[in-house]
């Protein structure tokens, strides 16, 4: 019983942590790249995009739950579409990367412990997530008559996710390379 409670509280902590981190990244992106906003749902550079596949790789379904909550915190009261629309919107934003990463892991035979994960895999997973997000997000908006901007909106989501992911991964990888430089074997 105690073990189950500890496990549950660990998962809840992870979900909350991921949600807060997502919200912070989204706010940072909105502040830095405010001029690159295509619409409230699309930015030509979207830094948090890299966060999605990385979180799913690390935390699996718990990560998806964190992304759903984070997306809800981000869109709450901003869409003008009511609570149900915001909940569905958030679920799509959180579950879509989980589906994309799961499919990518299966296609590229990436194990659960991520052994053998390389830069090519991360790039492909980010591309898969960007594609899936552009299709699902805008597909939902189109189905509910809320799609504004047509093809430009779809392109902005895809390009924004890719550019944002590339930029954020460049920053993180450089920080890691500086903090943990390669060592040659003796």
């Amino acid at each position: 019983m105690k073990f189950e409670i500890a496990k549950l509280s660990g998962a809840v902590t992870q979900v909350l942590g991921i949600a807060i981190a997502w919200l912070a990244l989204a706010e940072l992106n909105a502040w830095i790249f405010s001029d690159l906003e295509q619409s409230p749902n699309a930015h030509w550079i979207f830094l948090p995009a890299a966060f999605r596949p990385l979180v799913i790789l690390m935390f699996g379904r718990t990560g998806a739950a964190g992304l759903v909550l984070g997306a809800f915190l981000t869109v709450y009261g901003t869409t003008g579409g009511g609570p149900l629309h915001e909940v569905i919107f958030s679920v799509i934003l959180g579950v879509t990367p989980w589906i994309a990463v799961s499919a990518g892991k299966w296609m590229m035979d990436i194990p659960h412990n991520l052994a053998g994960l390389g830069p090519r895999h991360i790039i492909l997973l980010c591309t898969l997530c960007a594609s899936a997000n552009a299709v699902m997000l805008n597909g939902y908006l189109w189905a509910t008559g809320r799609l504004e901007g047509g093809g430009t909106q779809i392109l902005a989501v895809f390009v924004g996710d890719l550019l944002g992911a590339a930029l954020l991964l460049l920053i993180i990888s450089t920080a890691l390379a500086l903090a943990f430089p390669s060592r040659s074997r003796g």
Binding site: L54, L114, G118, H121, I122, L169, S173, L176, A177
Partner: peptide, 8 residues
């Protein structure tokens, strides 16, 4: 994997 992405 992320570290290996660095051009530096």
């Amino acid at each position: 994997a992320i570290r290996a992405m660095s051009p530096f």
